[in-house]
Design a binder for these strands. Structure first.
Length: 586
RNA sequence: GCGCUUGUAGCUCAGCUGGAUAGAGCAUCGGCCUUCUAAGCCGAGGGUCGCAGGUUCGAGUCCUGCCAAGCGUACCA
């Protein structure tokens, strides 16, 4: 209906251009918006005000000319000029009720479109280091990313969901060493745990696992472990130097194979846990991409060679630098350290080179907002690799500040004091957790009150939407119980009987679904979908309270049933995109 | 210091490419269950849209300055 109206206005503009009222060369961008209140009709455009200046007319005069030039159409019942020069359109309600037929026809596909035209888009999200279980901060990125991906797919993009596994690097070594030390403890070795080690219970769990399978195979005397090792922080030394020395010692004492065993046990265990966690949270991936793989197959080296060849690398102070400052970054960045090791950024360059090589039309990275300073250098890398910086879009998800009632919850992965995603799911359930996370704009700082979210009973807004769906199902059950017949076709022929205010409001909300979906997807704003569903549910609940559906008049009854079934369908379609259940009863 | 993000009702947040009287939930107060589930509905109160300028027919929205909060500013990941 919107598109139809836009076309009509376009025709009016063209004819005014021919008459010379509007200059030929003016680019007319028709802004047609839905009105907020019924007194302004169904649609309104500010076109006359936009063009008034260039046409050298006052807006109301121009509006009159536009209206006069507008072709007749049966769907438009009235056109009004209002306020400073708005043109308001009143649409025929029988034309509006056609949306019910459309929804019935398309079913689960209603709202889906092809604006993405099959373009390949990669969405990388969560990508938390496999050094421990996911916590509630990762949950927001997981929910947000998976809904973005599903939305993009719904509007016609070919979506590749990916998790970048940081299975190389120092943090993983710290984890492996932490596990080994806990293992020594399990063996009965007297042991001092480093200040900078991973302290979570899961570290001990993995250590016990290893001990159960391998017994004392990896046991070494603790005196040898700490022999000539620099002092830890609590002992008056430097914790970083201490842990690095422990890592080096672990590699020596265990040998390459032994160290790899412990390392792999930790990685596999935690990665399996993360995969399982996300699966249960309704998050699916097409690919788990290993950083170590990039190291092993020479991709990092190759990527740096490409930068070298295009003249973006230089040596200074014994390190190799990427001249990112020539491409918009604040300063240049080290890619190979003085000690010959690649920086994290080096493998990230390789990773993005790999993404580019795979031929995605668009690359979407979803990061925690604390990484925002990283964007310019990655964009610089993209350009240095010969691609357009706009190929990459980075979406930031603000970290949620956790509260338990009034009290702020402090979190630190290292100390092991954090609320895990799994704990949250156990407490509030998948549906409420997903709904809560996606409800807010992602770049908005969010106060996440666990007490509120875990209160199963009341104000979880997800129930409100689900309840609307369940209520429709309940009405349909009653229909059967009362042995009332239902004739869908007859109902479709009687849609003109839907003239109540609440019914018209529902029709207009239903009609908005496809354009809302498109916008939510293209602007990467899943909260728009949530807002919409709450509105639709509200319209329905209001209608439910005001009118009986199972009335004696069969035609009215069938028409109303078709309407509420359309509501049920759209609620289901929306909830499905959010990967939230659609209960038939509550 | 510089950069990014944010500042809207008591609280948590919406506000579509600048548009008509700034909205919702929660909380508070007052109504509605012999009718298809009251996890619902109806109503009331509550706002200098951080502050000050500017742009224009028109600014919560755009520009500038200031204030405040969070994050970032590594040869860590």
């Amino acid at each position: 209906m919107r598109k139809k109206l836009e076309a009509l206005i376009q025709q009016a503009v063209v004819s005014l251009k021919k008459e010379g009222v509007i200059a030929e060369d003016i680019n007319v961008n028709i802004a047609l918006e839905r009105t907020r209140g019924a007194q302004h009709g169904d649609f309104a455009t500010n076109l006359a005000m936009m063009l008034a200046k260039s046409a050298k007319m006052n807006p109301r005069q121009l509006a009159e000319k536009l209206v006069a030039a507008l072709p007749q159409d049966s769907a438009v019942t009235k056109v009004e000029i209002a306020g400073p020069g708005f043109i308001n359109f009143f649409m025929d309600s029988s034309a509006q009720s056609d949306i019910i037929k459309l929804i019935h026809e398309h079913g689960a596909d209603f709202g889906r479109s092809q604006v993405g035209a099959g373009k390949k888009i990669q969405v990388e999200f969560v990508s938390a280091n496999p050094t421990g279980p996911l916590h509630v901060g990762h949950g927001r990125g997981a929910a947000y990313g998976s809904v973005i991906a599903d939305l993009l797919e719904a509007v016609g993009f070919t979506v590749h969901r990916e998790y970048y596994v940081n299975d190389a690097g120092r943090q993983m070594d710290i984890l492996a060493t932490s596990i080994w030390l806990r293992y020594l403890e399990e063996c009965g070795e007297p042991m001092r745990f480093p200040d900078n080690g991973y302290r979570g219970d899961y570290v001990g769990d993995i250590a016990r696992d290893i001990f159960r399978n391998a017994k004392n195979e990896y046991r070494r005397p603790f005196e040898l472990v700490v022999e000539d090792i620099p002092q830890d922080e609590a002992q008056g030394g430097d914790k970083e130097a201490h842990i690095d020395a422990l890592i080096a010692r672990a590699k020596i004492l265990l040998g390459t194979a032994g160290y790899r065993d412990v390392f792999q046990a930790g990685l596999n265990n935690i990665l399996d846990d993360i995969k399982n966690d996300l699966l249960e949270f309704g998050v699916n991936y097409q690919e788990w991409f290993s950083e170590q793989q990039l190291m092993d197959d020479g991709s990092v080296e190759k990527a740096l060679k490409r930068l070298q060849a295009s003249g973006h690398l230089y040596e200074k102070d014994g390190a190799t630098w990427f001249a990112s400052s020539t491409l918009g970054d604040e300063k240049d960045r080290v890619v190979i350290r003085e000690n010959g090791q690649y920086t994290y950024f080096a493998s990230d360059i390789a990773y993005h080179a790999n993404k580019l090589d795979r031929g995605f039309d668009q690359i979407l990275d979803i990061w925690g907002a604390d990484h925002h300073g990283y964007i310019p250098r990655v964009k610089a890398a993209i350009q240095a690799l010969g691609a357009d910086a706009s190929k990459l879009k980075v979406l930031l998800v603000q970290f949620a500040t956790l509260y338990r009632g009034e009290e702020k919850v402090q979190m630190s992965t290292r100390s092991g004091e954090f609320v895990t995603l799994r704990q949250l799911r156990d407490e509030v359930g998948k549906d409420a957790a997903r709904f809560f996370y996606v409800m807010r704009r992602s770049e908005q700082h969010m106060d996440f009150d666990l007490q509120l979210a875990t209160s199963k009973t009341s104000e979880n807004p997800v129930y409100y939407v689900q309840y609307a769906h369940a209520r429709v199902c309940s009405v349909l059950r009653h229909l059967v119980e009362k042995n009332l017949p239902r004739d869908i076709v007859s109902g479709m022929n009687a849609l003109a009987l839907l003239t109540e205010e609440h019914e018209l409001a529902l029709l207009s909300t239903l009609e908005r679904y496809p354009e809302m979906l498109e916008r939510a997807a293209l602007t990467h704003e899943p909260h728009q979908l949530i807002l919409y569903l709450r509105e639709l549910a509200n319209d329905f609940h209001t209608y439910y309270n005001a009118h009986q559906f199972l009335v004696d008049d069969a035609k009215v009854r069938d028409a109303r049933l078709n309407l509420i079934c359309a509501v049920k369908q759209v609620l289901a379609n929306g909830l499905q995109l959010l990967n939230i259940n659609t209960p038939e009863s509550m």
